[in-house]
Amino acid sequence: MFRLVWLGALAALFFSTTFVLNRSMSLSGGHWVWSASLRYAFMLPILLAWTLGTGGPRAVGRAFGLFAAHPVFWTVAGSVGFGVFYAGVTLASVFSPGWVVATTWQATILATPLVLALLGRAVPRKGLAFTALIFCGIVLVNLEQARNAPDVGSLLGIAAVLVAAVAYPLGNQLVWEARHGGGGRIPRIDQPALDAGRTPTLLLTIGSIPFWLVLVAVTRPPAPSPDQVLQTGLVALFSGVIATSIFLRARSRAKNAYELAATDATQSLEVVFSLLGETLLLAGPWPGPLGAAGIALAVTGLVLYVCRQV
């Protein structure tokens, strides 16, 4: 369990670059569609090179073979787990500061038990209690930051993050379900390659391509600036490749619903890392007593997840 939480926390560190850099690009006038779609355009060659370098041509062929065997599944999972998720996060950055997006995004820790229940998985009650404790901490952080910043973004931005908060665990859980037996319309994909982290990330990225092509065609955004391209490349590397691969690796090692919920709950640490990043790089305010109390509650919830195993 400790290793799962450690991997999740490390992933949260790299994930937090998303909120800081997306806000930076938004403030400089970059269109949110390019911030979203270019991330996955960069991720695809990086993941292919990584797979080729670590597993050789055979690993690349195996990955494409898995996609060819279940193209509908990977397109649906990729469009939901990567497409809807990241489009919502980047859209929100247009209306809200990075800390608002990061704190609202923590609704995903409550969405995870709902997704588990939707897919027929039992959710331990004490796991829900720890999740609620973490979420209460996030609410305290959000309340304090809202006091310090009169413009907390539009309802559209908040709604976009809430949709993303459901889409991300849903896409990830679809992959977990397929790897561990499938059922109903979810195919059974009994392949150890899916435990590596990079392989499901690559497959979900490929699966999301139709979503991004349609989004760009519909919105017709103006051409991105060189600075936006550079920052999007950094997000692709740190958050899209490194963080996602670590996180999916941690989830693949989870043996039951409790460990899955605990792993997903580590995303609460993104608030801490995002606050630090925005404070240091974008001159945001430091959290006060209420925010510190919220962070303490979130960390306490994570510690309880580790100490109270099922």
Score class of each variant (00 low, 15 high):
Leu140Cys: 11
Pro192Lys: 13
Gly181Thr: 12
Pro222Gly: 13
Gly233Asp: 03
Val161Thr: 06
Val152Ala: 14
Ala122Asn: 14
Gly182Glu: 11
Gly181Val: 04
Thr219Cys: 09
Glu177Lys: 06
Leu204Met: 15
Pro200Ile: 02
Ala236Asp: 00
Trp176His: 10
Cys136Arg: 00
Asn142Pro: 02
Pro210Trp: 01
Leu119Tyr: 03
Ala129Phe: 10
Ala117His: 07
Leu133Lys: 01
Ala193Gln: 09
Val141Leu: 15
Ile206Phe: 10
Val235Asn: 06
Gly182His: 08
Arg220Asp: 13
Ile158Phe: 09
Val229Glu: 06
Leu230Met: 10
Gln228Met: 14
Phe211Gln: 03
Arg147Tyr: 13
Leu213Met: 10
Glu177Gln: 13
Ile138Thr: 09
Pro124Lys: 01
Leu174Arg: 01
Gly120Phe: 01
Val218Gly: 04
Ala129Trp: 01
Gly233Ile: 07
Ile134Asn: 00
Leu119Glu: 04
Asp151Leu: 04
Ile206Thr: 06
Leu133Met: 11
Glu177Tyr: 09
Val216Lys: 05
Ala159Met: 08
Ile186Val: 15
Trp212Tyr: 13
Leu118Gln: 05
Ala178Met: 08
Ala129Pro: 04
Thr201Gly: 02
Leu155Ser: 12
Gly197Leu: 01
Pro124Thr: 02
Gln145Trp: 04
Leu204Arg: 03
Arg179Ala: 15
Pro224Thr: 05
Gly184Ala: 12
Ser154Ile: 07
Leu156Asp: 05
Phe135Trp: 03
Ser225Gln: 04
Gly120Lys: 05
Gly181Tyr: 09
Arg179Pro: 05
Leu118Phe: 14
Asp227Leu: 10
Ala159Pro: 04
Phe238Lys: 03
Leu237Met: 12
Leu174Ala: 01
Pro192Thr: 12
Val216Glu: 09
Leu114Val: 11
Ser208Thr: 12
Thr201Met: 01
Arg188Gly: 09
Ala236Met: 03
Ala243Ile: 05
Ala167Val: 07
Ala129Met: 13
Gln191Thr: 07
Leu128Ile: 15
Pro222Arg: 06
Ser208Val: 15
Val241Thr: 08
Val214Asp: 02
Arg198Met: 10
Ile138His: 00
Arg188Tyr: 08
Ala164Lys: 01
Thr201Pro: 10
Val139His: 06
Arg198Val: 07
Ile134Arg: 00
Thr201Glu: 09
Gly157Asn: 04
Pro124Gln: 00
Val163Ile: 13
Asp195Gln: 12
Ser208His: 07
Phe238Ala: 13
Ala165Trp: 00
Gly240Lys: 03
Pro210Cys: 03
Arg185Phe: 11
Ala132Met: 14
Trp176Thr: 10
Ser208Gly: 12
Leu114Glu: 02
Thr131Ala: 15
Gly157Pro: 06
Gly181Trp: 09
Val241Arg: 00
Ala165Ile: 04
Ala149Gln: 14
